[in-house]
Design a binder for these strands. Structure first.
Lengths: 187, 187
DNA sequence: TAAAGTTGAGAACATTCGTTCTCTATCCAA
DNA sequence: TTGGATAGAGAACGAATGTTCTCAACTTTA
């Protein structure tokens, strides 16, 4: 049953690409079949439903995000630099050519009201990021109120970059974060 | 043809409520008919298509937003306070009981990739807000780089509040904005 | 008053799409 | 080799939905 895992992963990767690029309801199961080469019968043996695929995609995206910001933070040493590395990571993402906003926010807007599990997945993802930032803020010795401010900058940069189509928002957010961090530390 | 206008407005208001609360594709034309009491035939005589209704809804939302922040700014006098009034306006919106994120971002995530006019409407809205903030920043005598930072805070507060379900983001964003404005002014 | 035109309600249509079903081919055991 | 079971491909099903069509009611005008 190792190839089952591999097939699931292939399906999740393809679904992630398609859902993210075009929206969830805009992608049909038949397109996922064409993209993966996995027959409908097989897809439905790997997952209960399209919704189950979506939830797996969101879980996968959560891991990508978590490992991405961890890797960026790993390249620097101080808590302050680790906090700022978030915005560098965002800049890399914004300029990778396929950026179309935060997948969780997109899924939340499209399906959050009708599929509670989607709203929950989005909330979990944002909670997790808030805690990550809060941990670094504490390590930096700054007041806890700084954390949501920095998280809000990251969120805002994502939507601004998505809609404007420009990666500048990452720089603006980074500059703002620097000012906020320094102001919070020298008090 | 005055009642035609009135019927269009009623349809737009109802569609706005439904689309915003549940997502666009989750609302059927038949539900809009039930909500408005306007027959399908009539709806299709008032608008070319569901998509045309959506575009009218987005235009309507743009006006609501523009007049909302203008009203909030009208209650105070200095450019600095006008800038901060944006976040007070947001707080009021977040706590009105029906808040589910920025309608433009939701529409962008759901349909931006498949309906270019939706992506365009979202971009226009965000552009317009950026220019509004930039104007106030200039009046305040602060460097232009402050404007995108403040706009990003507003965007981030909207998505954070939507997903977390809490209005705290408005306060965090306001506090951050105050720090950024003051830092930008005393240089 | 009567005929012609207009409007409206909602039934109907055609398409789309998630999901299931059928039939075929392959593989393994005896 | 053969019989049986498993898995896969893709045709088929049934529900949902945007849009149009039909027919009846009403209004207007001569």
């Amino acid at each position: 049953m190792e190839e089952r895992r591999a097939a699931q992963k292939a399906a999740i990767d393809a679904a992630d690409r398609l859902f993210y690029a075009r929206g969830i309801q805009a992608v049909t199961m038949d397109e996922l079949r064409a993209e993966t080469g996995i027959s409908l019968k097989k897809l439905y043996s790997l997952f209960d439903s399209k919704q189950a695929i979506l939830l797996a995609v969101l879980a996968h995206r959560h891991e990508l995000w978590t490992s991405g910001i961890a890797r960026a933070a790993g390249a620097v040493s101080t808590p302050r630099d680790k906090l700022l590395s978030v915005y560098d990571f965002l800049h890399g993402w914004f300029t990778d050519g396929n950026y179309r906003g935060c997948g969780f926010i997109n899924a939340f807007g499209e399906l959050g009201a009708t599929v509670p599990a989607v709203a929950l997945a989005a909330r979990k993802q944002k909670d997790s990021f808030q805690r990550y930032v809060a941990g670094l803020v504490e390590q930096a010795g700054a007041p806890a109120s700084l954390a949501p401010q920095l998280a809000i900058l990251a969120e805002g940069a994502q939507t601004t970059a998505a809609i404007s189509g420009s990666a500048d928002a990452a720089h603006s957010a980074r500059d703002a974060a620097e000012i906020l961090i320094d102001a919070a530390l020298q008090r």
